[in-house]
Nucleic acid binder design. Structure first.
Lengths: 227, 227
DNA sequence: TAGATTGTTAATCGATTAACAATC
DNA sequence: TAGATTGTTAATCGATTAACAATC
């Protein structure tokens, strides 16, 4: 049951994908699920699924599998979705608005509590009930709101500046959507949402699919997704 | 020099990060760079950087390092940024508009050539020079434009439908921003841009940083980013 | 030459998978 | 009981790192 030491990013991602898969099952699905079913739906190995789940859940039952209800709560508990965290958003342009609109964040325990923008035309407006403040107020308001997560959704050229302001406001974790390498002190955590890199990966897979691996290929993995 | 067999996703991501780092260096930076410098800036091991680069470039020079100009072109060539690919976008809401505005995609060889939306108020409009067509025309226009990449930026509930239309139009690679597991045939490639999962990872790192690993921790990696 | 830096070989480490026993 | 399924142990595989020789 629940380990304490840091787990690998790959494992963490898989756990998240299990949770999402199970939560997404249509109404009226059986209330149990086997590791093989999960593995098949996600293109993974069933032993791996069982091993992953063993580190999280109270275990499945032979011939039955895992009780989805229990599994969901075990996963959520382990992944820490229980305690909601608050964040501020810098940049209320299209991307910022898209993030504000993204219904799904609350499922992951995130709530955006304030937005900032440097554009005076946006300052003072509100979007989906969220007020947009002047970027100058970032350090002050972050401190007052005692928020620890900052989201950067500004153009590349202004990202470092936004980051600095957030850090000044006591932000400890930065979620960066701008295509730049932010410089931050070691005390802070940065996660780059590098959409360019992500796109490149898609294009890479596509190319690999179109020009099949050839003689050299050894481990062309078979089917990943359901037809 | 340049391997042919499929390379690992982690390696591919690192190569992308090298490219981005080097391209981002300020004007007037030296025209050479050492593996140690790259490694330090990205929080990696320098041997790893050299090994990665060896698979891509014509090599560095002892005492000098790598010539950035050559390295950039080697990386770009290897990563396939040379040949630009075209894509269509489904969903011209805030997220869609943010993607259209994202200056950076062209650096990765992607051009969005058409946008679709189900909302009649958006159909017929254009944004940054890109026309928005009715979602009904997806299969037809995709075929006519001979596009192979589709981007899904619609709400979760409509994502599978959008995906089906794209597949009907001959799309082979789907970049999915909706928080659902799309069902696609094996012939297609899907990349899920799961922002919820990404957020969860950030929150995980933050938690790990705030409550230090404790006695159990064995390999707390030291410094990752510059102060 | 001495020092910095690359590139490679071998060792280590961690993650995945195969085989199989346990259990309902 | 027979069959399906879990959980675990051991083997495999791949990726990272350490040590060091090669080179400018």
């Amino acid at each position: 049951m629940a380990e304490l030491r840091p787990i690998s990013i790959m494992l963490y991602k898989r756990l998240l994908s299990y949770l999402r898969l199970i939560k997404q099952r249509p109404e009226g699905s059986p209330d149990n699920i086997s590791s093989a079913t999960i593995a098949h739906a996600l293109g993974l190995n069933d032993v791996q699924v069982r091993k992953d789940l063993a580190s999280v859940s109270s275990g499945g039952k032979p011939k039955i599998g895992y009780i989805t209800k229990d599994l969901v709560s075990d996963l959520e508990h382990f992944l820490g979705h229980d305690n909601c965290s608050e964040a501020v958003l810098v940049g209320a342009g299209n991307l910022g608005k898209a993030l504000i609109s993204y219904e799904n964040f609350e499922n992951y325990g995130l709530k955006i509590v304030a937005a900032f923008d440097a554009d005076p035309r946006l300052v003072g407006t509100s979007f989906k009930g969220l007020d947009v403040f002047s970027a100058e107020r970032i350090p002050d308001l972050c401190r007052r709101l005692k928020v620890h997560i900052g989201i950067i959704a500004v153009p590349a050229a202004r990202a470092q500046q936004a980051c600095d302001a957030l850090l000044e406001g006591g932000i400890m974790a930065v979620w960066n959507f701008a295509p730049v390498n932010l410089q931050v002190p070691e005390s802070a955590v940065v996660r780059n949402e590098d959409m360019g890199a992500s796109l490149a990966l898609l294009m890479k897979s596509l190319k690999e699919k179109m020009s099949p691996p050839g003689e050299n290929a050894r481990t062309a993995r078979p089917g990943r997704r359901r037809p």
